[in-house]
Each structure stands twice: as C-alpha cells, then as structure tokens.
Amino acid sequence: MKKVFESPKSLTKDPFTYCPGCHHGIAHRLVAEALDEFGVREKTIGVCPVGCSVFAYVFFNCDMICAAHGRAPAVATGIKRAKPDSIVFTYQGDGDLASIGTAEIVHTANRGENITVIFINNAIYGMTGGQMAPTTLVGQVTQTSPYGRDPKTMGYPIKVAEMLSTLKGVAYISRVALSKPAYILKAKKAIRKAFQTQIEGKGFSLVEVLSTCPTNWGLSPIEANKWLEENMIPYYPLGEFKTPEEVS
C-alpha cells in the first residue's frame, strides 16, 4: 500500500495549538500543500497576524515573521519589495484584516502587490474570547454584541471578497469554506490558484476562507460546520470574484 495522504513538508511536526475542531488547522494544511506542490517552500516568507494564528510561525516550515495587528499586508509589502523573487503570503483573521487592518489590506490590494493573502473569516474574534468581528452576522450574539449584532448601531458584516474585487489592481479573489470535504477540495484549488497567480507575477491574490470557531460560537465542531453552512454561506456566497484573466 502506498501512502496517499500525509502531512505536507511545509508544515512542521508541531501539533497545532488551536481548539478542537477549529478550521485553522485545515487552512494551514492547504496552504502548506500548495507550497509543497509548487516547490516554493524554500523561497517562501509567511507573515502571521495577531490573533489565534499568531502561532502560525510555529507550524509553517518556512521563514516566518509576525506583524503588528492588521499590518501583515504592509509587512508583506516590505518583504516582497526587498525580495521580489520570494513567495510572500499573509495569513490573517477577520479582526486583523477587516477591522484594524482595513487600510493596509485595501491599499496593498490596490497597489497590486504580488503577494497572496489567506483571509480566515470565522465571524468572531477568537484569541480575545469571542467578541464581535466586522464579519459577525446580523443578530449573532458575541461578548460585545450580547443582544445580537444590531446593524443600526454596529453596521452590517463586511463582505471582504466582494469589496476588494472592485479594485483594479487585484488579480485573484475567491471565497471558499472548509465545512465539508467537497468544499475543502475547492478551497485547495482556490489557494493553489492564488499562489499560482503570485508565482506567475500577476499580482495580488486573496482567498477568503469561511471557517468555524466552535469554542467561541458555543457549538460542537459538527454543529459549527452546520451553522456555517446555514448562516454564513447564504450571506457570504462561495466562488471566484476575480480571476487573473480579467486583469488587463
């Protein structure tokens, strides 16, 4: 018998420190598989955010740096401009990318920086214990929206993929989910395409990954997957929003 599924080389052997059922582990593996498959691990520099995945530097087996909260795209810009031949990716959560780092992500995308952004949208702040994120759904209960997110005072959840795909400098944007094998296979394809976009020098690529946070959602991992499919996907439709072919 041949081994047909194993941990990619671009992950270290360290066990993930994420909560049981958390999708970070799946997203990490998909990124690492893409780096393995393109043979770019040894020229990759990853930028981890502030949030649960601040520890991503432990798990990715490539050069890594930790940015200040929200600034990962700016740090990635500095790296890529200094070392244009390297493969640079950021890995950011929704608080990091869509709240405190909104300016950085918008302008990095707009400059068409040739980097790849993996954007984990789980509709909540994980590391600090479950506060409202910019992507928290209307009515969703969190520590800081204890009566449910009220759009009158808290605004509506931000659709990052749609918003950024309006920018001309952007080459590839897609939204995927990790709640079942079929979605995971599609997510893998999207992440590969994002890195391919960068490898071919076509410009900015981003994959928004709808993920669960069972701990802070107060659900079991299986229930969380169901919640994601029933509540997040209807508001955050899956699919490609921009592909390199459209770049003039």
């Binding site: 041949k2 047909v4 799946i26 094998p181």
Partner: peptide, 19 residues
Amino acid sequence: TGCAFCALTCPDVAIEVYK
C-alpha cells in the same frame, strides 16, 4: 475505501491514508 475525506476534514493533520 481510502477516500481520505477523514484526513481532509481533520484540523490536526492527524490522519494518514494508505491505498
């Protein structure tokens, strides 16, 4: 059947599949 769905879904890369 070695479909690897379990390994795909495992968030801890704890499953290896042989076929």
